[in-house]
Amino acid sequence: MKSYIVSLNISEKRGTRKNEVSNVILKENWGIIGDAHAGNWHRQVSMLSTKSIEKIDKEKLKTLSYGDFAANIIVKDVIIHTLPIGTKVKINDAELEITQIGKACEKDNLVRRLTGKCITPEEGVFLKVLKGGRINVGDEIIFYAEEKI
């Protein structure tokens, strides 16, 4: 399955709005260089689909940017939260793997405060970086299951 990146977002501090950027560098077993959520753990990068964002009230959407949804990568039209854990993601030379689907929504969640819904915790996915590389807004994304022999 294929898609493309519509937005890349990073923040220097957790619990704050992410800033939109045109490209990022993914570091193997770390995440996005310069993002507060990077580290040696299973939730190095977060991803959300425009299909999830479209569920927000249209009037509220007018005042929000992609960075307000607290996801590092926003992809076009793929319902990513239905993909199984272990799904591989290829973007240019970089490779990632889905490690978690959704998470608990804290009471004071930034996305909930801004949108009225906990869309990112409910429908976002988390990934670890298997192979690093530079990725850009507009780059093609390929989602695939690694076949077991």
Rank of each mutant, 00 (worst) to 15 (best):
I98Y: 12
D139F: 14
I98R: 11
I85M: 10
C118R: 03
G102Q: 11
L114S: 01
N92V: 10
V137N: 12
I142D: 14
L110G: 12
V125H: 02
F126H: 03
N109R: 00
V129W: 02
P84G: 09
R134C: 02
I85T: 10
I142N: 12
G86Y: 09
T115R: 12
R113H: 03
G86W: 08
V125K: 04
N109Q: 00
L114D: 06
I91E: 09
R113E: 15
E97N: 07
T99P: 02
K103D: 06
A94D: 12
E140Q: 12
E122L: 13
K103L: 03
V137E: 15
L96C: 09
V125M: 02
L110S: 12
L127K: 01
V129I: 03
I91D: 07
V137S: 13
G138Q: 08
V125G: 04
D139H: 06
V137K: 15
G138H: 14
I98V: 08
T87C: 09
D139E: 04
D108P: 04
P121R: 03
L96E: 09
E95L: 15
K103A: 06
D108G: 05
G124M: 00
N136Q: 08
G102Y: 11
E95I: 14
N92L: 10
A104G: 09
K117I: 04
A104T: 09
C118N: 00
I142G: 07
E140C: 14
E106G: 11
L114F: 04
E97A: 11
G116A: 01
I98P: 00
I98H: 13
N136P: 05
I85V: 15
K131N: 07
V125C: 03
E140S: 10
A104Q: 15
E122T: 06
N136D: 13
E95S: 11
T120Y: 00
N136M: 08
K131T: 06
K107Y: 07
L96S: 08
L83S: 07
D139P: 07
L127N: 02
N136A: 05
C118S: 00
E123R: 02
N136E: 15
K107G: 09
I101Y: 10
P121K: 00
G116C: 00
A94F: 07
L130D: 01
K131V: 14
N136S: 02
I142Q: 10
G133R: 00
I135A: 01
G102R: 08
R112Q: 05
D139Q: 05
D93C: 07
G86S: 09
